[in-house]
Simulated assay, not measured.
Amino acid sequence: MSTVTSARRLLARSFSRAASATPGLDARLLVEGAVGQENPDPDMQLPADALARLRDFATRRLAGEPVWRILGEREFWGLRFRLSPATLEPRPDSETIVEVTLAALAGRREEALSLLDLGTGTGCLLIALLSELPRATGLGIDLSAEARDMAAGNAELNGVGDRAAFRQGSWTEGLAGRFDVIVSNPPYIPSGEIAGLSVEVREHDPLLALDGGADGLGPYRIFARTLPALMAPSGIVVFEIGAGQGPDVVALMQAGGLEFRGSRNDLGGHERALIFALT
Rank of each mutant, 00 (worst) to 15 (best):
residue 1 M to C: 11
residue 4 V to P: 05
residue 4 V to L: 05
residue 5 T to A: 12
residue 5 T to D: 09
residue 6 S to G: 00
residue 6 S to T: 04
residue 8 R to G: 03
residue 11 L to C: 01
residue 12 A to G: 02
residue 14 S to M: 15
residue 14 S to V: 02
residue 18 A to G: 11
residue 20 S to N: 06
residue 21 A to R: 15
residue 21 A to S: 15
residue 24 G to T: 05
residue 26 D to A: 06
residue 27 A to H: 00
residue 34 A to Y: 03
residue 35 V to I: 15
residue 41 D to K: 07
residue 47 P to H: 08
residue 49 D to L: 14
residue 50 A to V: 01
residue 50 A to D: 05
residue 52 A to Y: 07
residue 58 A to L: 06
residue 60 R to W: 04
residue 62 L to P: 10
residue 65 E to Y: 08
residue 69 R to I: 08
residue 73 E to C: 11
residue 75 E to M: 09
residue 75 E to Q: 13
residue 76 F to M: 02
residue 80 R to Q: 09
residue 81 F to R: 07
residue 82 R to F: 12
residue 89 E to F: 11
residue 90 P to E: 05
residue 91 R to I: 05
residue 92 P to R: 04
residue 93 D to V: 05
residue 94 S to Q: 05
residue 100 V to L: 13
residue 100 V to F: 14
residue 102 L to C: 04
residue 103 A to H: 13
residue 103 A to L: 01
residue 103 A to S: 14
residue 106 A to I: 08
residue 106 A to G: 15
residue 114 S to I: 08
residue 117 D to P: 09
residue 118 L to Q: 12
residue 119 G to C: 00
residue 119 G to M: 03
residue 120 T to I: 08
residue 120 T to S: 15
residue 124 C to F: 07
residue 124 C to G: 00
residue 125 L to N: 02
residue 127 I to T: 02
residue 127 I to L: 07
residue 132 E to P: 10
residue 132 E to A: 15
residue 136 A to I: 10
residue 137 T to F: 15
residue 139 L to E: 02
residue 146 E to F: 09
residue 148 R to T: 12
residue 151 A to N: 11
residue 152 A to G: 14
residue 154 N to S: 14
residue 155 A to G: 13
residue 156 E to H: 14
residue 160 V to L: 11
residue 160 V to S: 10
residue 161 G to Q: 06
residue 165 A to F: 07
residue 167 R to D: 08
residue 167 R to E: 13
residue 169 G to Y: 09
residue 176 A to V: 09
residue 176 A to C: 12
residue 184 S to A: 13
residue 185 N to G: 06
residue 185 N to Y: 15
residue 186 P to M: 02
residue 186 P to C: 01
residue 187 P to H: 04
residue 187 P to A: 00
residue 191 S to G: 01
residue 192 G to F: 04
residue 199 V to M: 09
residue 200 E to K: 11
residue 200 E to Y: 02
residue 206 P to Q: 01
residue 207 L to T: 10
residue 215 D to H: 02
residue 217 L to P: 07
residue 219 P to L: 12
residue 221 R to K: 10
residue 225 R to Y: 01
residue 225 R to L: 01
residue 229 A to L: 00
residue 231 M to Q: 00
residue 234 S to F: 08
residue 241 I to M: 12
residue 242 G to T: 01
residue 245 Q to H: 00
residue 245 Q to C: 13
residue 249 V to F: 06
residue 249 V to A: 06
residue 250 V to C: 03
residue 250 V to P: 01
residue 253 M to F: 08
residue 254 Q to V: 03
residue 256 G to I: 06
residue 257 G to L: 13
residue 258 L to Q: 01
residue 261 R to P: 06
residue 262 G to C: 09
residue 263 S to Y: 08
residue 265 N to W: 07
residue 265 N to P: 08
residue 268 G to E: 03
residue 268 G to D: 03
residue 271 E to I: 10
residue 273 A to I: 09
residue 275 I to C: 15
residue 277 A to W: 13
